[in-house]
Design a protein around this nucleic acid. Structure first.
Length: 372
RNA sequence: GUGAGUGUAGCACAAUGGUAGUGCACCAGAUUGUGGAUCUGGCCGCUGUGGGUUCGAGUCCCAUCACUCACC
């Protein structure tokens, strides 16, 4: 078995759960946040600095690595772990979402997706089979089914047909998979429709996967709708497998979705926002660009113990940002990821102590007195 | 010293004699399975100065100051 999952504890006041996932490259403790390292690097972070903030698993990307430098090259270089110098677990996204979000020209058929590279405009064809083979060549611990992430809003009929095709694709991914040391996750689609989500989940379960993900959220729907879909979808996902909510989210989203029973998250928000000056703190987010920080000697977040907060002032970080210095992005990224991982660590501890509900209340209470 | 040219927002530049604009910078937002990307707002003017012509001048005329280039 490529992947083990132990459900360690269930919170008594919510659907939050504490778990542990075992992979060939070590264990990960859930609920967990996975920093995004699209091009075989979490932008600005060395593997050493990722270790320093206790990143347990990172996400990388099939679409990008297939286009550059090529999955075969990565395989010849010893696989993704060796290539990028990261010996802890890795999850690769299948490329379904990127084809949806990057490519101007794309044509989706039953066979697969024909699309144009965002790098050089060259034409490519990804199928459930090739996406799976590419992910086997890359060699991540957890790989994802190739799915269609339907645009929101779409008609019920489109969501239905898209979900049904994603199911057929999921079956093809599983049939293509050969490696025993990789886990394969199925992705539940179905837009914002409960009956479609439930059917998709049920049929994926029948095919059987090592874990299950919710895809197609955070694509423009309201927060309440996203939570609603997550709630009824998480409720029918098997208890004895990891539940992964793809592409989510803000700190609030993490707290809310842990509350609804999600175990794994990934999101570009902490890393991307860091590069453009938006920093997450225990009292809400701040924009380090703001003029009001020009002579602020305090740290980003007085409650944070990250390298940036231990050593530098808001004034200095603002200066670095406005000067376009590389260190600005490094320190900001370090801080935001530290914040996210620390948040998840505190969430885990609160579930362990059976006080997640209290934790959630405190989390919001702190934001209300946001007086930066 | 002589000749020519240029003076417009913090900077780089637009604007038939008819409501002074654009980009960058600056000030703020947005950002959810990553393009250091992108998007959305906002602020900024005695058009070097002083006269004149005109219903009306950034624009035409005169003077003056500053800068640039060329030639002594």
């Amino acid at each position: 078995m490529a992947l083990g999952f132990k459900l360690l504890k269930k919170d008594s006041g919510s659907s939050a759960r504490l778990g542990c996932v075992t992979t060939p490259h070590g264990e990960i403790n859930t609920p967990i946040f996975m920093p995004v390292g699209t091009q075989a690097t979490v932008k600005t972070m060395t593997p050493a600095s990722l270790r320093e903030i206790n990143a347990e698993i990172i996400l990388s990307n099939t679409y990008h690595l297939y286009l550059r430098p090529g999955h075969e090259l990565v395989k010849r270089m010893g696989g993704l772990h060796e290539f990028m110098g990261w010996d802890r677990p890795i999850l690769t996204d299948s490329g379904g979402f990127q084809v949806f979000s990057h490519s101007q020209l794309r044509k989706i058929t039953e066979e697969g997706v024909r699309f144009q590279s965002h790098l050089d405009g060259s034409y490519h064809f990804l199928t459930p089979e090739s996406a799976t083979q590419i992910q086997e060549a890359l060699g991540a611990d957890i790989i994802m089914c190739f799915d269609e992430c339907a645009a929101y809003p779409s008609t019920y009929d489109y969501f239905k047909q898209s979900m049904e095709m994603t199911l057929r694709w999921a079956k093809r991914c599983k049939e293509t998979k050969t490696r025993e040391d990789q886990a394969l996750f199925g992705i539940i689609q179905g837009g914002m429709h409960r009956d479609l989500r439930e059917r998709c989940a049920a049929e994926l379960l029948e095919i059987g996967f090592d874990g299950y993900a919710i895809g197609g959220l955070s694509v423009g729907e309201t927060k309440n709708l996203m939570y609603e879909v997550t709630e009824y979808t998480a409720a029918i996902m098997p208890e004895d497998r990891p539940r992964y909510l793809m592409g989510v989210g803000t700190p609030e989203d993490l707290v809310e979705c842990v509350n609804l029973g999600i175990d794994m998250f990934d999101c570009v928000l902490p890393t991307r926002n860091a590069r453009t000056g938006t920093l997450f703190t225990s009292f809400g987010k701040i924009n380090i660009k703001n003029a009001k920080f020009a002579e602020d000697k305090g740290p980003i977040d007085p409650e944070c113990g990250c390298y940036a907060c231990r050593n530098f002032s808001r004034a200095y970080l603002r200066h670095l940002y406005h000067s376009g210095e590389i260190l600005s992005m490094m320190l900001n990224t370090m801080h935001n990821l530290h914040y996210y991982l620390d948040l998840m660590r505190n969430i885990r501890q609160s579930i362990k102590d059976d006080r997640f509900v209290q934790f959630r209340n405190d989390f919001y209470a702190k934001r209300e007195v946001n007086n930066v």
